[in-house]
Design a protein around this nucleic acid. Structure first.
Lengths: 249, 249
DNA sequence: TTTTAATGTGTTATTTTAACATAATGATAA
DNA sequence: TTATCATTATGTTAAAATAACACATTAAAA
């Protein structure tokens, strides 16, 4: 491989050949949603992501991207996999689809990507495109379009990781608004686990963990019996997480 | 940051600023062991690891390093964390300690490292140093010396990951020789979990999983009642793993 | 006022776990 | 040759967790 444009690359503020991709998930109308970007002048979508600055921790870069795309700070963000294959995707195809947007030399190199997932409150996000894209929107994670790069695969791996980490991570805490009902929490767990749960057993188990506080209010407006509102007792929640005692089947 | 030696670096067969570190674990005399390297002309130890080739998958690089240090192929190898801090360790200190061995310019850059752990059969390993080191040896994971770089920290994180993944990974399968006794398997689990288990309950639970085959032979030579030998039923083991049903408390 | 479907609470049988006891074994020491 | 003793194998039981059920309550809509 001949050296090329080396001065330019090394002068760049970014680490070459290392990127990250963020699977930003939320929960809305009983569905898991993922935040996607549409590239300028195309109908092509991809995950948010990008390169890492030379003087920036990888975790910090993930937080920066999360902040830029959602407006949110201090959010649960978890690295879940490194995508380090040489031929992660068809680079020629990307070069063709995005040729009007990017420097072909810059994007033609093999890159390793660190995958992160973030769990955010749908109602608090302001989806914001980046310099290369013109639309940022939530997609039902079950019905994403064919994405650029290997991003469908990355989403798949993220969801697997989320399922196995469900017991050790503060998952409800970040995906739901501050106040929520038990049926809402149950539907979140069902969406992540991909199976239905018995509401009576779910309720008993959740409450027995001692991490929920029932409020005086109920959620009004539904067609039927109005459910109680709850919020997480933050200290107890984090205690349980440390103990690894939120295992859920 | 001024550009420097850019031609040289880009011509290099390795990805700049990306490395990997391997926490190679085995089990011997009831203790978890980790494979460490001693650097030439020093008393300084570190984990095996190194850079990734431009045309090489990151997983392939980990397998290459594992093979070079142990002689083993086709071994369970799991990436567990990306160490992406800017100041992972004191680079000045490393530069001083290893100044007789390395090009200071090359090693003075910030690097991101992908952490892997491997679980190997102690009896099958031939510890082999690399070009920079003159000794490769097993250390009790509880009593490692102060290591170079952030490698004590990497071992710590690897052990945490191993504990939480104990239920979903084929851990016994790789850490033990083909034939083993139930007390040996129990002591392995105790070493990983860091706590003692009740042998009666352990035995019943293990056997109830249906992944062990009892052999006619017993292990002779112990001072007391000779225990039965077992081996894993590979298909059943992998089935259980897929189901995520090896949870162990 | 009735209907309807979602919510909250309750019951029970089964399974799993935790805690504890004891018999069998086989080299070693007496 | 026999007794000793630590280790292994197997057994028992109470407590806890889980799974699979039934049913009363509620609030909007018909």
């Amino acid at each position: 491989m001949p050296p090329k444009k080396t001065i330019l690359r090394d002068a760049a503020p970014y680490l070459p050949e290392l990127t990250l991709d963020c699977v930003i998930l939320s929960f809305h109308e009983d569905r898991l949603k993922v935040l996607l970007l549409r590239w300028k002048g195309t109908q092509e979508w991809s995950l948010p992501g990008g390169p890492i600055q030379r003087n920036e921790a990888v975790d910090a870069a993930a937080n920066r991207i999360l902040k830029e795309r959602t407006g949110l700070d201090d959010i649960f963000l978890q690295q879940f996999h490194v995508f380090g294959e040489v031929e992660r995707y068809n680079r020629e195809e990307i070069r063709h689809k995005l040729k009007h947007l990017i420097d072909p030399d810059k994007w033609y190199e093999r890159a390793v990507s660190v995958g992160y997932y973030a769990l955010v409150d749908y109602t608090k996000v302001t989806p914001t495109p980046d310099a290369y894209t013109e639309q940022c929107a939530w997609w039902d994670v079950q019905h994403t379009p064919a994405l650029l790069f290997d991003h469908n695969h990355i989403i798949h791996v993220a969801r697997q990781a989320l399922r196995t980490q469900l017991s050790w991570q503060p998952i409800g805490y970040n995906l739901l608004p501050e106040q929520f009902t038990l049926p809402e929490l149950q539907r979140l767990y069902e969406a992540i686990l991909g199976k239905t749960l018995d509401p009576r057993n779910f309720q008993r188990k959740m409450l027995s963990l001692g991490i929920l506080e029932r409020l005086a209010e109920r959620r009004r407006g539904g067609a039927h019996k109005s459910p109680y509102l709850y919020r997480f007792k933050k200290e107890q929640y984090e205690l349980k997480l440390k103990e690894g005692n939120l295992f859920f089947t």
